[in-house]
Simulated assay, not measured.
Amino acid sequence: MPMTAMCSRKVQTCLLVVGYFTYLFLGAIVFQALERDAEQHEKTAVIQMKQAFLQNFAHLSVGDVEQFVKNLTEAIQKGVYPVRNKSQVEQSNWDFSNSFFFVGAVVSTIGYGTLCPKTAGGQLFCVFFALFGIPLNIVFLHRVGKILSLLCKRLGKCLYEKGMKKKKTKFLTLLFFLVTGILVFLCLPSLVFQIMEGWSYSEGIYFAFITLSTIGFGDYVVVSIWNLK
């Protein structure tokens, strides 16, 4: 491959990586701006509803209690939890780290469902963000795949030049990248989740696989980053 073509590919790859993460960064900022105030208003209303219930619960009718449970359930479905201390009330699900995690889930089509925009502006922006973000994510992953494929070819060529048979070279190369992929994308993240989240190792593997496969049930969430629970 000519040197100029190689340099051009490296520049294109760098621009793609910068553009990809800039797109996620800007998306996280916009979602934070659109959703944070509305969420805080909703959270304040829920806390006031809870306080009113605690002050008057002895005089409430069955219908009042059922209405309170209904309102509370709707609030929880919106990601608003009636917590006790003030710091938790002021803490937003739409801080930058959570917003960045959310945009990553959008463009990768994982869609955990544990956090989603509630305002009309946020929902509309989400449509356009995903419309352009999903193809960008596909292009980004395609480029990553090309880089890994190139590394695979170089490894195979290196082994072949050292006198190894072609079939054995292909097998060992494939085995190397398979084992490396399992270690990097399943085993190592599962260990991190076990330490940080208090999950069992099998739960960590389950979460990593559900995430990588973009199934995204949402039954397990990284709480250390995603402050929803």
Rank of each mutant, 00 (worst) to 15 (best):
L24E: 05
F101P: 03
Q88T: 02
R143A: 06
V223H: 13
I215N: 12
V221W: 14
F171E: 11
V106P: 02
K10G: 13
F101V: 13
P135C: 12
F102N: 00
E74V: 09
S202R: 14
L34M: 09
Q88I: 06
L178R: 04
T13K: 05
K168L: 11
G27W: 12
V80Y: 01
A105L: 14
T13C: 09
T119C: 03
Q123F: 00
T114E: 02
H142A: 15
L175N: 07
M196R: 14
S99D: 01
F21E: 13
F125P: 10
C152M: 15
K86L: 10
L148A: 09
R84P: 05
M3Y: 07
Q67K: 11
L148C: 06
L131D: 04
F68Y: 01
F207K: 04
K170Q: 08
K118C: 08
V17Y: 08
A208W: 08
M196D: 14
A28R: 12
I138N: 09
F125H: 13
F101R: 09
A38H: 02
H41R: 13
S200G: 11
E66C: 04
I225T: 03
V46F: 02
L115V: 09
K168G: 06
L228I: 11
I110F: 14
F101Q: 07
V30Q: 15
G198E: 13
N227I: 11
L159A: 06
D219K: 08
D64G: 11
Q77D: 00
V17D: 09
N56H: 11
E42L: 10
G145R: 06
L159T: 07
K118V: 05
I47L: 07
D219N: 10
K50W: 09
W226T: 12
V89H: 11
H41G: 09
F102K: 00
Y81S: 15
E197T: 03
A208I: 04
W199P: 02
Y201Q: 12
A45Y: 02
V103Y: 10
G122E: 01
T73G: 15
Q32S: 04
N98C: 15
T44C: 10
L174C: 14
V80F: 00
K168Y: 06
A120P: 04
T73A: 08
K43G: 08
A45R: 05
N137H: 12
